[in-house]
Design a binder for these strands. Structure first.
Length: 231
DNA sequence: GCGACAG
DNA sequence: ATCTTGTCGC
């Protein structure tokens, strides 16, 4: 693969990302979480998208897609590896969320095109990047209390909020994906917290993708009528 | 040249 | 990301 060409594509595509609020709702009705994982030694890429009602945060729908992996993981080029599977899961949804949380960075990326921004642009949806680790930029040390935050700075730009969502946990990196300003991004993420380090949409997407126990209880409760058309 | 480096 | 058991601390 031609890294030079991909790098140029990122710079060009990043120019189309909308970094401010550009959505109609005052309060969202549906917020989704997206998660990507790998199976069979990495040969298969699996994407999961979970839709939650807002503000109750109850799971209302989920979709899982599996496709053959096309690219290896290379820091800075994550979106090219993950978006095909995300698009496949997205196309299966019967309804669109108002907001989508994507695992990984948005504009807090060397060329300002993390997976949250790239995917948001592809489906023209408001997205927020929720990353667990830093990719680029610097920030002042955070105090220990839950709620502590500091701006992530890179080359004079404020790219994300480094936010300690829970005491004794490493902070999260909340950034603009597409069509959601940095402050709003943090705001909506904060509205989706329920006592864990990660927001509910992200946790559900992960639970659904890895068939976690909490998800299995939900699956049980819905009576498994359409066990087959779910993936 | 050396270290950093989302998932 | 994924492979994987127990274990230390609140």
């Amino acid at each position: 693969m031609d890294m030079t060409a991909l790098r140029a594509e990122q710079v060009a595509t990043a120019g189309k990302v909308i970094r401010h609020d550009d959505y109609a709702f005052t309060s969202p009705t549906i917020i989704a979480g997206a998660d990507v994982g790998f199976e069979q030694g990495g040969e298969v890429t699996r994407a999961a998208i979970a839709l939650l009602r807002f503000p109750t945060l109850e799971l209302i729908e989920y979709r899982i897609a599996r496709i053959n992996t096309t690219m290896p993981y290379i820091p800075g080029f994550l979106s090219f590896r993950e978006y095909p599977a995300l698009l496949a899961a997205w196309d299966q949804l019967t309804q669109r969320p108002d907001l989508l949380f994507v695992d990984g960075h948005g504009i807090s990326h060397p060329r300002r095109l993390g997976v949250a921004s790239h995917f948001g642009l592809l489906v023209d949806q408001p997205t927020i990047g929720v990353a667990k680790r830093r990719l680029c930029g610097r920030f002042e040390p955070l105090s220990d209390e839950a709620g502590a935050k500091a701006p992530l700075m890179d080359k004079g730009e404020r790219l994300a909020w480094v936010w300690r969502s829970k005491i004794r946990c490493n902070p999260l990196f909340i950034s603009t994906g597409h069509r959601v300003g940095m402050d709003s991004a943090l705001h909506w993420v904060q509205q989706c917290m329920r006592g864990y380090r990660l927001p509910e949409p992200t946790r559900w997407a992960d639970a659904v993708a890895s068939n976690r126990t909490a998800f299995q209880r939900w699956e049980q409760g819905r009576g498994e009528p359409d066990f087959f058309d779910l993936e």
